[in-house]
Design a protein around this nucleic acid. Structure first.
Lengths: 366, 366
DNA sequence: CGGATCGATTTGATCGATCCAATCGGGGAC
DNA sequence: GTCCCCGATTGGATCGATCAAATCGATCCG
């Protein structure tokens, strides 16, 4: 333990001596203030402030079997979630955890098996209170293991496929961003701007998020009565694939806008649109939207669907705390029943709505 | 502390009982095996394995005042270091720390003052053994604070400016990537391909890393006798600025290659080159190199200088351990003196050489 | 006016490891 | 054969908090 040059840190006993009470009373002031007489409480709090007392978490954990630390495997980059989203999620998670008196511990693992091995070790040695998972998939062994061992956890990403949830069991807690709502918003935005023939540039079928996003585009067009024969291309992630696929759709002069499943593909589409504006200068500019609102999108002025990772992180912590016995849950609003007749603290999942960031790539005046 | 459904975890006493020795002997086997007779050691190790014993870090820390945890502030995104580099660094740091029996704890802070406040709290409550810092700047108050309080730390990024180091004092431990060597390699690569007129697309003067990278480009040209009147443009980070600045340099038909200070600017330069190949089809393709080897570079086939963050992370941990009293240092190679007559463990900083990743953007056949 | 009651506070034990001083056991010296 | 010494091992105390139960004090009631 690194220690400053200053005096040894104050302990509970020091505070107790200074306030003229016993250790336990100090502990009560900090943990269950309501059982301490106000006058005593005041005195103790003053002593705490004067000595700058801060509790030793090791001692606390030894006794209570709670570490106030959450685990997160640092995912390999390029694992699916765009790198920057991950950064922002980590940052927000650290912040939200802190707000709730918790910390985030990182660990690394090369594969599923190694990750489960780390769970074991971290639970045994560091006594982590729970885990946040970022890249789950149908039949994920980690989910099964954590469930079986009754370890609190929350996934960023909804469960896809039934394997994750044993029959009859509650689904595990999760938080996710509503991709459907995102592309729907983007598409409606383009419709409002007067576009009629709006293509979709997506990933191959079978990726959950990709399918959701396509569904949002389709639903918006259908509601507008424009889904008939709407053009759509599927390709793998990447800028160059996006250029090729976009060019194919733009071969039809009626197509004036493209909704893309990711910023990378949108970047490729922008390149195709740029080529088009050089070869066919009389054609009106093509509008493009992306997904994730990455720094590249900001840099090139791409309209994009932004994932509210701060909200996701806040919900993640909330759902984790709800599973940890004895963890202070955020006070429910009022003593009554929440909206919809369902108590908020009973929720075990959240689908967060993203928001559309409009930039030049979709604005009429370019 | 989350606990599985299995039996209560084994403690030192359990192991001792099973092996028929005392607690202290078990502790010795694990911490100072050389003082235990081999036969006893065997017996204890067998018991450890049979019971799957894993030490409780809270108890250990309480007694030893070492937590085996390093702190890292999760930087805000867009703070200077490219997002993806940060991810990879974090991942590597977690991995390297783990290899050395340490863990990484994340925390968040909005500004320097808040960060120092967190240092205080983390040292007092969680007893962190040290910190890794990522975005230091001349006169950084965090560096001063950590120094004054004798807290072990290492910065990713060399100190720039004298304020950081009190006169007469050793510079603080740091690890950095040699940007000079990186652009020099990139430039030499272009020279080998036959390019003679090679421009530099950089950031405005005054950014340490930016200046280093420019110097590398300049040194390579100078060594080749081609530095006279070499074109160069400075602009802020971003794709669009890059396109504009690159177009200005490419207005001179003699310029056939551009070395860029970042992948974003290089991306912009690629767009300018693309425009050029459409408007002037007879002109030979322009070669472009970037810096950081981000996913975008991989996606668009951009030759780029890759930062070896794994090596940086390994050095970071190494330098941190060297400062932590009692931390097991990696065994020095042999009993003699290291290369250069200087013992490795005395090093307090490392300048790591990056490597050039060659892709289509600089290959002759496009 | 004594005893039951209840709230506020204190005391002693404990979590699981390591530190420190004491003890044990066996080989070598005399 | 006895004594000494040194390496191996043990037992007790301790780190700093919380738990559980005991104690204290004042109020309330019959």
């Amino acid at each position: 333990m690194a220690r400053g040059t200053g005096p040894i840190r104050a302990t509970l006993s020091d505070v107790a001596a200074r306030a003229g009470v016993s250790r336990q009373t100090v502990s009560n002031v900090l943990n269950t203030p309501e059982v301490v007489r106000p006058a005593t409480r005041e005195r103790v709090l003053r002593a705490v402030a004067e000595l700058d007392y801060q509790p030793n978490t090791a001692a606390r954990r030894l006794r209570t079997h709670r570490s106030h630390v959450l685990g997160l495997r640092m995912p390999e980059v390029g694992d699916g979630v765009s790198g920057e989203i991950l950064d922002r999620y980590l940052h927000a998670l650290a912040k939200e955890a802190q707000r709730a008196g918790m910390r985030i511990m990182l660990f690394a693992a090369d594969d599923e098996e190694a990750e489960i091995r780390e769970y074991r070790t971290l639970l045994a040695t560091a006594g982590l209170d729970g885990f946040a998972l970022t890249h789950t998939y149908p039949g994920d062994g980690r989910v099964r293991w954590l469930r079986e061992h009754r370890v609190p956890f929350v996934t960023f990403g909804r469960p896809r496929g039934e394997q994750d949830d044993p029959p009859g069991a509650e689904p595990h807690p999760w938080v996710d961003v509503d991709g459907y709502a995102g592309t729907r918003m983007a598409t409606e935005h383009l419709l409002e701007l007067g576009h009629r023939r709006i293509g979709f540039l997506g990933w191959p079928d079978g990726s959950g998020p990709g399918d959701d996003r396509r569904a949002g585009w389709y639903a918006a067009l259908r509601a507008a009565g424009l889904s008939e024969g709407a053009p759509e291309e599927r390709t793998e992630e990447g800028v160059s694939p996006g250029t090729g696929a976009a060019a194919r759709m733009l071969a039809d002069p009626a197509v004036t806008a493209l909704v893309c499943v990711s910023d990378s593909l949108a970047l490729g589409a922008l390149a195709a649109a740029r080529d088009l504006s050089l070869t066919a200068p009389d054609r009106p500019p093509v509008a493009v939207t992306g997904f994730d609102d990455t720094p590249v999108a900001r840099a090139v002025g791409l309209t994009s669907v932004a994932q509210p990772v701060e909200a996701v992180a806040a919900r993640t912590v909330e759902l984790l705390l709800a599973q940890i016995p004895g963890a202070a849950r955020p006070a429910s609003p009022g003593a009554g029943v929440g909206r919809g007749g369902r108590r908020d603290q009973e929720r075990s999942s959240f689908l967060v709505t993203p928001r559309l960031v409009v930039r030049e790539s979709s604005r009429p005046a370019r």
